[in-house]
Design a protein around this nucleic acid. Structure first.
Length: 205
DNA sequence: CGAATGATCGGCT
DNA sequence: GCCGATCATTCGA
């Protein structure tokens, strides 16, 4: 790995403020390599989820089940689950062990190996629907829920996050309520969705 | 064990 | 803009 492309350290993920981790992930690169070619995208949209007080979080009230178990692991693990029976949604676990915080990655700007992404998406040409949206970006990068629970700081991990020196300035970041969490009562209003203003790859919502 | 419910997407009108 | 797909997970009986 070159000096410019370096994996984020554990300390990036174990910070206690999941909102800071969410904003900090904008401009970082999500990379996968399952042995059939590396694919990568620059993160341009992310949402924070935080137990125990956030009703939109799967671990609300610190609910501990087989599915939510990995959210309680220390920052840097991957939490991936199936949504609407079809879509695999990728989250970055944050906080120290015992804190069930996670960041849903909602959109990527394609950065590496778009031919393989197009093939996985069964698309002919590059367009926003290639990676704009949490379900489609997982498909483009080959991420499925069988990888939930992996530690992305493990050197053997096929999924990881790196810095490539393409930072996002604070003033480029906008916030809004999270998408699709209308059921979460007062938590639905919290502006915990962060995205790069004006970026063409941000999902419509 | 049965029933309800999604942190969505894409096709059709 | 609306609507159906499709299934793991969760909770209550």
């Amino acid at each position: 790995m070159s000096e410019k492309n370096r994996r984020l350290p554990r300390s990036f993920f174990t910070r206690s403020d999941v909102l800071e981790v969410s904003r900090g992930l904008l401009g970082k690169y999500l990379v996968t390599d399952f042995g059939q070619g590396r694919t990568a995208g620059r993160i341009v949209e992310a949402e924070a989820y935080r137990a125990p007080d956030d009703k939109a979080c799967h671990a609300y009230g610190n609910r501990f089940t087989d599915r939510t178990r990995v959210m309680f692991a220390r920052g840097g693990h991957a939490y991936i689950y199936l949504c609407y029976g079809i879509h695999h949604l990728f989250n970055v676990v944050s906080g120290v062990e015992g804190m069930a915080h996670a960041v849903l990655i909602r959109a990527l700007e394609p950065a590496e190996n778009t031919p393989l992404m197009l093939q996985r998406r069964r698309m002919q040409r590059v367009a926003p629907r290639l990676t704009a949206g949490p379900g489609v970006l997982s498909q483009a990068l080959g991420i499925t829920r069988k990888y939930t629970g992996i530690d992305m700081l493990d050197s053997q991990s096929p999924i990881w996050i790196e810095e490539r020196n393409a930072p996002v300035a604070e003033e480029e970041i906008a916030a809004s309520p999270r998408i699709g969490v209308g059921y979460a009562e007062e938590c639905a209003e919290w502006e915990w969705r962060f995205f790069v203003k004006g970026n063409a790859w941000v999902s419509g919502g």
